[in-house]
Design a protein around this nucleic acid. Structure first.
Length: 561
RNA sequence: CGGGGUGUGGCGCAGCCUGGUAGCGCACCUGCUUUGGGAGCAGGGGGCCGGAGGUUCAAAUCCUCUCACCCCGACCA
């Protein structure tokens, strides 16, 4: 590709709308342009990156027996009604055709897979199967953000396994985990595999592949000692205990002290000696009072798992209605609603709201002074102890680049995907689903590897391998650049030739911005010393070599790039 | 959905408070000079100031409504 004949619109300044490093650099390097919130055009360079990732995905999916198919983006609403997901997912785009029939835009393809399996899978002899596609998904995200990290339209590699039973599903799942590790390793990413939430839909287990980055939207907790790693939606931790005073139960006046911070300051105690009481309301289960230690944050996903349904925080008037007191003095004593108590509170005596305006009660113990259901409710914090080995947990911000999910038989049962086993008995197909976002791979690579001058692509997903920068003005120099460019392509090295009539500084800045692994500068040293300069983008290491040694040198450097 | 912010040539911004002929830098076009880390000079093209309505002799500027986009939170198969 020649720069003079390409759509390669680099930007000198950071676009005002971009916040994340990868977002800024993808715009500045001319990889993408935004059409609307969360909707992007992939320009030629960005497309090449996506194609590189796609090729790796196909190789590794095929290697575990995956068969590529392509499913529709438009689905009949009826399919989603059958699995009960038509009215429950706010992200689903819905539309009607000219006859008024309800359709949806596909945000995932479990339904279509189960529909297909119901028609084509009859016998245990047809199993197992692994089907995958690399296809566009449409989701009406509440808040698209961070460039291509969270968009309303995006390409996903989604695969689905069909197995006769859970043992076979475990094998398919393990095969996917291996394939995913190879994929992300090849893409040059740093990542962790963590336990993840299976969501309200249930499922038999799930893991997420998480690439550390400040631009991420998730947090994971990890134990370096035993390897425990989980999304904080799920991660359990054992916090350090405060020193409990030998206090006896008594009411204390706490005028104007509403928040934990105010109460702790007023009573001159460690906030860890207080309990935070939060009223939530579930659509069918009604009000529930959740208790966590004063310094802790309630994780709403944990709460919802414990309750068994989606909950929302109660309005102030609901708090008054159910507990007879305003928000700042709520507590578990004599509460007329069910209690969910964080496990941290099993031991110790605490200060709680008195359910009486302006009063708290100290010396209160769970189990003795109030009772309810214990559950893990608090957000794990860095430094707290691992539940498995007691080692200190680290918490890290991450981008979710892939997930693997044991679905079980939910979709198969809803859509009638059954087979006959060896004994002639009809059984539902056991499914798994597995996703990878190529755009997130590209973003994560940029986030993890970029430096102050621009992108630093790993070889495997770089849009080109060699950036030939022609800065000489004499014909011999220009001709040498052309020869090197041609020689690279002939040797299987994908090359970009900067043949613009620009000053060298402009070309060097753009080359750094684009981040192609190897830059070959053809300029005045050719006439003076008979050499061109080869620079490794990542290390900025320079070497002078004869023009006819470029291919050989790049090939020898390649393993280190 | 709640909170905050921004919309003015392709990009980044000023002008708005205090209404009066739309400006700057970069980019773009022409010419000359220059040429190894985002050149200089000269000339030039391009914007109904997000949209609608209102106030006014007069609106980028004031008022009302609306749309879009960004950030934080909520939500996220």
């Amino acid at each position: 590709m020649r720069v003079t004949r390409s759509l390669l619109p680099t930007l000198r300044d950071d676009p005002a709308d971009a916040e994340a490093i990868s977002h800024k650099l993808m715009l500045r390097a001319g990889l993408v342009r935004q059409l609307a919130a969360g909707i992007f055009v992939w320009l030629p360079l960005g497309q090449r990156v996506m194609d590189k990732v796609g090729a790796i995905l196909r190789e590794e999916m095929n290697a575990i027996g995956g068969q590529e198919i392509t499913m529709p983006v438009i689905h009949p609403a009826e399919l989603w009604r059958q699995t009960g997901r038509y009215d429950t997912i706010p992200e689903q785009f819905k539309l009607k055709d000219r006859h008024g029939r309800d359709l949806v835009l596909g945000m995932t393809h479990e339904e279509v897979i189960a529909w297909l399996a119901a028609r084509e899978i009859r016998s245990y002899r047809d199993l197992p199967q692994t089907w995958y596609q690399i296809q566009t998904k449409e989701r009406d995200e509440a808040r698209p953000r961070s460039g291509v990290l969270r968009t309303r339209e995006f390409v996903m590699k989604d695969s689905y396994t069909l197995d006769p039973d859970e043992a076979a599903l475990d094998r398919s799942y393990a095969a996917h985990e291996g394939a995913y590790r190879r994929i992300f390793d090849r893409c040059g990413l740093r990542y962790h595999v963590v336990e993840s939430d299976t969501g309200m839909m249930g499922g038999l287990g799930a893991h997420e592949f998480m690439a550390p980055s400040a631009a991420g939207e998730d947090d994971i907790a990890m134990c370096a000692q035993c390897g425990y790693a989980a999304n904080v939606e799920l991660a359990r931790s054992v916090p350090a205990k405060p020193d409990f005073p030998a206090w006896t139960r008594e009411d204390v006046a706490t005028p104007d002290a509403k928040t934990i911070v105010e109460v702790a300051a007023f009573l001159k105690i460690d906030p860890r000696l207080t309990i935070k009481s939060l009223l939530y309301v579930g659509p069918t289960k009604g009000p529930v009072l959740a208790l966590v230690r004063g310094d802790h944050t309630l994780h709403e996903r944990k709460l919802m798992r414990a309750v068994g349904e989606e909950c929302r925080t109660a309005h102030p008037d609901e708090v008054r209605q159910h507990l007879g007191v305003s928000v700042g003095s709520v507590g578990p004593l004599a509460a007329r609603v069910p209690l969910l108590i964080d496990e941290t509170l099993r031991e110790g005596t605490y200060v709680v709201g008195a359910n009486r305006e302006g009063f708290h009660v100290r010396g209160v113990a769970a189990g003795r002074d109030f009772s309810g259901t214990f559950a893990d409710l608090h957000v794990a914090l860095a430094g707290e102890a691992c539940v498995k080995c007691g080692g200190p947990l680290a918490v890290e911000r991450v981008i979710e680049i892939g997930n693997i999910f044991k679905l079980g038989t939910k979709y198969a049962e809803a859509l009638g995907a059954k087979y006959l086993d060896e004994a002639g008995k009809e059984r539902p197909v056991v499914m798994g689903s597995y996703g990878i976002g190529p755009a997130r791979i590209a973003s994560a690579a940029i986030e993890q590897l970029a430096d102050a001058d621009g992108i630093v692509w790993p070889w495997a997903i770089a849009p080109f391998h060699v950036h030939v920068v022609s800065v000489g003005r004499d014909d011999a120099s220009k001709q040498a650049a052309e020869s090197i460019y041609a020689a690279c392509w002939k040797a299987g090295l994908e090359a970009l030739l900067d043949d613009r009539d620009e000053r060298p500084g402009v070309k060097f800045k753009d080359a750094d911005l684009l981040g192609i692994p190897v830059r070959v500068t053809v300029g005045n040293l050719l006439a003076k010393e008979g050499v061109v300069e080869l620079r490794v983008r990542r290390t900025r290491e320079d070497r002078k070599i004869p023009p006819d040694k470029v291919v050989e040198t790049v090939t020898s450097l390649r393993p280190s790039l």
